[in-house]
Write a protein that binds this DNA or RNA. Structure first.
Lengths: 208, 208, 208, 208
DNA sequence: AATGAATGAGGCTTCATTCAT
DNA sequence: CATGAATGAAGCCTCATTCAT
C-alpha cells in the first residue's frame, strides 16, 4: 500500500543517524545543528520540523541507543553458551561499523547524564533494562550452579557491566590509535578472564 | 619575611578549584569562563593572567588530577593489606568533599579525551602512572602467590581499573540521589567481591 | 523569472559598502563588526554568512578597490589626450561620492599592508595592475616622443603614481576642512604641472 | 652637576623609543600598552606616570617625529647643493637604523590623522614646518633661476613632498622584501629624475 | 619611583532557533 | 514539506586603565 517506499526518506531516522555520527565525532555540545543538517544532507530548518530542539535530538538518540542495546540483549540471550553471551555483550562497543554505538558517544552520554536529569533518567532506564536481561541470562546459566564465588546473579551482572563500561572508557583514549579489530581482540581476552574468574572451577588451569 | 599569608590568595589554585566545581557541575563545554570567575569571586580577565585559555585550565586540572591520583597511590601502597589497598583505590571517587576528584568530572574528562588529543595524552599519562603503581602493589602482594586465576599482575590491574572506571560512570547517574556514604558502601561491597574472586581461595569464607 | 529585484538585497555588496563607510571613517582596527552591521542595517551574525572574518571583509574591499581601479584605468585609456588621462588617474581620490575609494581608506590599507602580508599581496597586485595600464598609456602617447627627460615609460609611471599617492596622503589631513571640489581643483593644478614638466617643451606656454 | 647621568634613565624618552619600535612594527592600534612596557623593560603602570593615556603616547611620538624632521631639515639646509638637499630629504625614510622614522610608522600616522583631529593638527604642523624650510632652500637655490618650468618655489616643494610621501607608501609594501640599502638606491634614482625634470636645462642629456 | 595584580567593557565569532518564501 | 536567510544572545579573549603595595 505504501507508495514510494524507497524514495520517501524517513526524516527522523535520517536526522538521528546523522546526529549520531556527529555526536560520536565531536560530542553533543561541540556539534552544531548545522553540523547535523550537513551530515544529513538537509537544511537546518527541517530538523526543527521533527525535533523541538537540540536537546530533543539528544534524547531521541538516547532512545535509539536503548533500542540498539535491547537488540544486543536479544542476541546475547540467544547465544548457546554463557561465555558467548558475555562476549557479545562486552565487546559490542568495539565494532564501529554500522549504525552501532560508538564508545565515545556512550561516554559522552554518561557525562551528559551527570548534569541533565532527563538524560540521566533515560540512561538509567536503558541500563536497568540491560541489567535485568543479563541477570536473567546469568541466573539461568548452568555455570552459576557450581560457581565458587557465592555472588548473586544481580551482583555478577553489576560486576560485568562495570567492567564493560570501564573498558569502553579506556577505548575512548585509544580511539584513533588502535583498530576496532585489535580492540575487540584485547577486549575478548578480558571477558574470558572475567568469565573464568566467575564461572570456572578454581582448580581448572588457565589456558589463555 | 612573607607577611599576610592569609590575605595573599593563591590565584591559580583558587581558579582551579572554582573551575573544578563548575566542570563537575556543568561539564567543560557548558562552563563559561564567566562561570569560573564568578565561582572564584574574581574577574574574568584575571583568569587569563594565570592561564592562557580555557583549555589550559582544563589541562591544569587534569594535571592536578594526576597529582591527586599519585597521592592516592601512595596511600594505597602503604596500606597493610592488599584488600585495603584496593578499597582505597577503587572508592576514591566516592568521597566528594575536599579538593577531591568528582566522578562527573572524570567521565567528562574521558569524553573530552576522545576528541582532544592533548587531553587524551594527559589522561593516558595519568592512567599509566596509576596502573604502573597498582601493578607493582599487586605483584608484591602475597595473595598473588596462591591466586588460582593465573592472571599476570598487569592483567589483574586492568580488570580492577576497568571495574573502578565502570563504577564511576554508574555513580554519575545517581549523583544527586544517593549520598556519598551510601555509594561508598555499595562500592566497597563490589571491591570485596572482586578481591575474593581474584585472590581468595574458593573455599575460604567471605569476610564482610 | 526573478521577481522582486528591488526587495532582494545584495548582502555582500551591502556589507562591503557599509564596511567601506566605517573603514573610511574610523580605520580597520577601530571599526567593530557591530559598527559595520549597524551601518548596513543588519545583524552582526549575518555578516558571517557572507564573510568568514573581519579580515575577509577587508580583503574583499581591497578586491573591490582593485576593480574600481581597473574601471578608472579603462576610462583613462579612453581619454583623448595624455593630459586628460592623467587628470582622471590622479584626481580619482578627490571625488567622494558614489562607491568610490576614499583616500583615508587607501592610506589605511597601505598601513595595514605594512604588517599584514596577505593585504600587502593584494595591494601590490592592485598597484601592479594599475601601473602596467598606465605604463602602456604613456608608452603609446605621442608626447613621449619629444619628451626631453629621457625617462622610460615605467619610470614616468612610477613618478606619477608616487605623486598621486603622496597627494592622497595629504588629502587625508584636510579631509573635513576642504571640499572635494576644492581638493580636486588644487590637485588638477599639480597634475598639470607634472605633465608640463614631463611632456611639454620648456618653451611651450602653460595652458591652464 | 647632574649625578647618575648614566644610571638615571630618561623615562619618557625610553618609553617613546619603545613605543616607536612597537608602532613601526604593529601600528598604533595593534600595539598594546603591555607591548610598549615590555619593549621598554618597565612595568605598565610606569608608563601612566609619564603619559596620561595611550593617545598621549601617540601624540608625543608625533611630536618627536616633528623634531626629527626638523633635524633632517637642518641637515638638508646645510647641504652644499640643491640636489644633495633633496636627496637627504627624500630618502630619509629609507634608512631604518637609529631612532629614525620608519615608513610604516609614518603611513600609520597619516592614517590616524585622518580620523583623529588632534593628530591631524600635529601632522599638519610638522608638514608645514618642513615645507616652509624646503621652500626657503629652493627659493635660494641658484638652479631655480634658470628653471624652465615656471613653478613657484612653494609649488615645487609640494611636488617634491608628494613624491616623497608617495614613495614612502610604496616602500611600506616591500618592507621585508627589499633591504634598506636597495630601497635607498632606487629612491635616489627617482630623486635625481625629479631633480633633472625640475632644474636641469631641457637640452642637457640625461646621464644615468 | 615602580610594580603588576585586578577590573570590566568591548571585540570577534558561533550557534540555536525562527520565519518568510 | 523544505529551505536557508536572519537574529541576537552568549562565549572566549584582550586591553586600557587603576591602585594597593
Amino acid at each position: 500500500m505504501a507508495v514510494q517506499t524507497d524514495t520517501a526518506p524517513d526524516r527522523p531516522e535520517q536526522i538521528l543517524r546523522a546526529a549520531m555520527v556527529c555526536f560520536a565525532k565531536r560530542g553533543f555540545h561541540q556539534t552544531s545543528m548545522h553540523d547535523i543538517s550537513e551530515e544529513a544532507g538537509i537544511s537546518v530548518g527541517l530538523i526543527y520540523r521533527y525535533f523541538a530542539s537540540k536537546e530533543a535530538v539528544i534524547s531521541a538518540i538516547a532512545e535509539e541507543h536503548k533500542k540498539e542495546l535491547q537488540g544486543l540483549l536479544e542476541r546475547a540471550r540467544c547465544a548457546p553458551t554463557l561465555l558467548e553471551s558475555l562476549e557479545i555483550l562486552l565487546t559490542a562497543h568495539c565494532c564501529e561499523d554500522q549504525p552501532q554505538m560508538h564508545c565515545a558517544f556512550v561516554v559522552d552520554l554518561f557525562a551528559e547524564a551527570g548534569r541533565n536529569p532527563s538524560i540521566a533518567n533515560l540512561v538509567r532506564d536503558v541500563l536497568e533494562t540491560g541489567m535485568k536481561g543479563v541477570t536473567e541470562v546469568i541466573a539461568r546459566a548452568p555455570e552459576m550452579r557450581n560457581a565458587p564465588h557465592g555472588m548473586k546473579p544481580r551482583e555478577v551482572t553489576e560486576l560485568i557491566f562495570a567492567a564493560a563500561r570501564g573498558s569502553m572508557m579506556r577505548d575512548v583514549l585509544e580511539h584513533s590509535q588502535v583498530s576496532a579489530a585489535e580492540r575487540r581482540e584485547r577486549q575478548l581476552k578480558v571477558v574470558r578472564q572475567l568469565w573464568r574468574l566467575l564461572f570456572n572451577h578454581a582448580n581448572e588451569p588457565a589456558l589463555a
